[in-house]
Amino acid sequence: MTKDSEKYWYNLSTGEVEKGFESPAIDRAGPFETAEEAAKAPALLRERSKAWAEEESRDDDWSSSKPKSSADGTDGDN
């Protein structure tokens, strides 16, 4: 296993693949084992973002369907 300083990163500002810590951390996505993987970072980030949004939406739907508690501490089923 290599150190992160020897891995590949995708520069979010320039769209370039970099090896090691060439740019500030805020501009980097990664690390990736190969330059080819790093080049695919935008698609990977879109996929993950979509999956997280779908998961969050499911969580929001679940929490909005739970019964609300009343002020007296009961669940309203009394």
Rank of each mutant, 00 (worst) to 15 (best):
M1S: 13
A51R: 13
K50M: 10
G15K: 08
R28S: 03
A41E: 06
K40N: 15
P31F: 12
G76A: 11
N11S: 07
L45H: 08
P31N: 09
K50Y: 08
K40M: 12
P42Q: 02
L45S: 07
P31K: 10
Y10R: 00
E18Y: 00
D61P: 00
A39G: 12
G73N: 04
T34S: 09
A53G: 04
A39R: 14
D72Y: 03
F32Q: 02
Y8K: 01
T34H: 02
T14G: 04
G15P: 04
A51I: 08
T14N: 04
A38M: 06
Y10F: 15
P67M: 08
E22Q: 14
P67F: 08
A41S: 14
G76D: 10
R58L: 13
D61T: 13
A43P: 00
D27S: 13
L44E: 12
W62A: 11
T2Q: 11
G30Y: 09
K7E: 07
S13K: 15
A38W: 03
S13Y: 10
R48D: 10
E36Y: 01
D27Q: 13
E37P: 04
N11L: 03
A53D: 14
N11K: 00
D4Q: 12
T74Q: 07
K40Q: 15
E33P: 00
A39Q: 14
G15R: 01
S69T: 05
S23A: 15
R48P: 00
